[in-house]
Nucleic acid binder design. Structure first.
Lengths: 340, 340
DNA sequence: TTGAAAGCGCTAACAT
DNA sequence: ATGTTAGCGCTTTCAA
């Protein structure tokens, strides 16, 4: 069978002996068609392998029926969860999802947004890298934008769905302090990064608990394996007296575990380790790592809902905050005499 | 400033005092325009925040400038790598990527394909769940399809980019046998699943080495955590005399590690464990896990290249096979007296 | 170099 | 209930 040009609505109409509007009605579910004609149309369509063109429909309707999703890295387990959540919600609403990764590069992010706008997506969900100027422009040009996991403080008008990071870090800090730890190291995000909430929560909680925070114990690292490792190594070597470390992300937690092992520190006998992000390896570690689970899937799902179903609720009000959960495993123990 | 309707090519033409064809030429890079006119057009466009509509262009050109990507699960680290590879290649070629997850469900997969065809994607890359009938139909209706990571034996006409799984399992098996192991358990994929190559490679290699394979030692599990765990537990409990287990995937490896720990088996003193897929936690394990790395990113990249750049090379010939790499860590040791 | 005009496949009035 | 028609925003001959 020769590979004919793909059939159009016109072909189907001709084959079924009806007008193109009727075919349109059948496929878009709009208007009314008699059962008999519907049958004829469907038959003709089946015969011709007809698939309505989203391009034609989109042009007419001025929307593509798809949304854009920008994450820093699809390879990161947390963001992968988030993507899955968006896909789940979008599928339910009949929208497709154009995914791209910006790797924390604002320029790249801006470029992606540009492309999405050209595609006339119905909206954009983004874990923003953080160039407020670009996003301000994007928000003006694009139908709608929802931030997920992070928000830009300069852009409070853009709705956001976040994990309750402050709460998560607080519970982690309280847990560690409750175990008796006083010198706990904090491995945090790059200085000035939006992850600043985590560090602030750490400091605040400690202060509330009457534990003085030593500047020397809170260190920041770029969101990359090597940087995380360097930060952890720096902290643990510089301050052999820390009895616990709180890693504000799974990359940092990974680094802490690796460094502790390298330094022959027993966990939790010598150092307790806890982290934000309950990724799958936390349970495989030996000992399994205590962590705060952030609902990546839900964040994605909610963000998509907010974008597509509740345009009303968007805009005004505070960001949506989703709860985290402390998962206690074996990596933290009660305070013991300082090592060394 | 009132939120005006988004500007069209006509608006720009009017504002710049030229015909729409000229604006089109400027933005599509086709034809020739004098520098002066180009400037005027660009200025007008900038003024109006004009973004050419991919919908309009797509309709005219009969292609959307995007490709579809179907994976079983974006949350799986290997598939996430694959997605990243596709994104990297697609970005370079100026195409966007519509991603969706089928979760191993052929019906869902078929539905996704349907949607992608309606979107008039320029091609589809899929890690097929495996309903040959659907894919046969899809291949007829869609411009082009490339399989990644897996292929359907019944559809040799669809080009595929795969990891050299047989080679990977062979090197793993040889490594284990070289350590002296004779009773090595094999944790494999569901019976009849495309992952059958792995099991076959295991059997063949053992046979070549003159090691008899005991049917009792090769077990299969669905690709899910619970199934994997059950399979691993079954194997290790039933045959306390196995001295090594080869897990044919990271989910199975995870299960093996967990079960071994549960059973108080020391690794590698009591059992050696090795697996296919060098996911990030392999290094975090204690001891770190020996694994075969499969090039997920490259597979995605190559698949995309094949789809978009080399339509000529498609179709004829064998699937593209990408090499794997054995990463030896500490989870495998020489044979010791049987436990128990 | 530039403009006019004819669609690309579809939906939505508007007729009938 | 069904057909006719006018675009949606763009590219591309074809003339000028």
């Amino acid at each position: 069978m020769a590979q004919r040009r793909t059939a159009t609505i016109k072909d189907v109409a001709a084959a079924a002996g009806v007008g193109i509007a009727t075919v349109s009605r059948v496929f878009s579910g709009t208007g009314s068609v008699s059962a008999a004609t519907r049958e004829r149309v469907l038959a003709a369509a089946g015969e011709l392998d007809y698939r309505p063109s989203a391009l034609g429909r989109g042009l007419k309707l001025r929307r593509s029926g798809g949304i854009g999703l920008i994450v820093p890295d699809v390879t990161d387990p947390f963001h992968a969860d988030l993507v899955a959540g968006v896909l789940a919600c979008a599928r339910g609403l009949g929208e497709h999802v154009i995914v791209d990764a910006a790797y924390g590069d604002p320029a790249r992010e801006a470029e992606i947004v540009e492309r999405l706008v050209e595609q006339r997506v119905d909206g954009i969900i983004a874990v923003p890298a953080g160039a407020r100027a670009d996003w301000r422009a994007a928000a003006r040009v694009c139908s709608s934008v929802v931030f997920a996991d992070r928000m830009l403080p300069d852009l409070p008008e853009i709705p956001a769905v976040l994990a309750d990071d402050a709460g998560g870090v607080r519970s982690l800090t309280e847990y560690l302090a409750g175990l008796g730890h006083r010198r706990v190291g904090f491995l945090g995000g790059a200085p000035g990064a939006p992850a600043g909430v985590r560090e602030r929560a750490f400091r605040d909680t400690l202060a509330q608990l009457g534990v003085p925070v030593e500047e020397d114990l809170v260190v920041a690292a770029r969101a990359a394996r090597d940087a995380a490792y360097a930060a952890a190594a720096g902290l643990l070597q510089r301050r052999a007296d820390v009895t616990a470390v709180l890693a504000a992300g799974h990359l940092l937690g990974e680094a802490a575990v690796l460094v502790a092992r390298e330094l022959d520190l027993r966990v939790p006998a010598d150092v307790s380790i806890a982290m934000v992000d309950d990724v799958s390896w936390a349970e495989l570690c030996d000992p399994p790592l205590t962590a705060v689970a952030r609902p990546g899937h839900d964040i994605g799902y909610r963000a998509c809902e907010l974008l597509l179903r509740e345009p009303a609720r968007r805009g005004r009000g505070q960001p949506v905050l989703l709860p985290t959960e402390l998962v206690v495993r074996g990596s933290c123990g009660p305070l013991r005499p300082a090592r060394r």
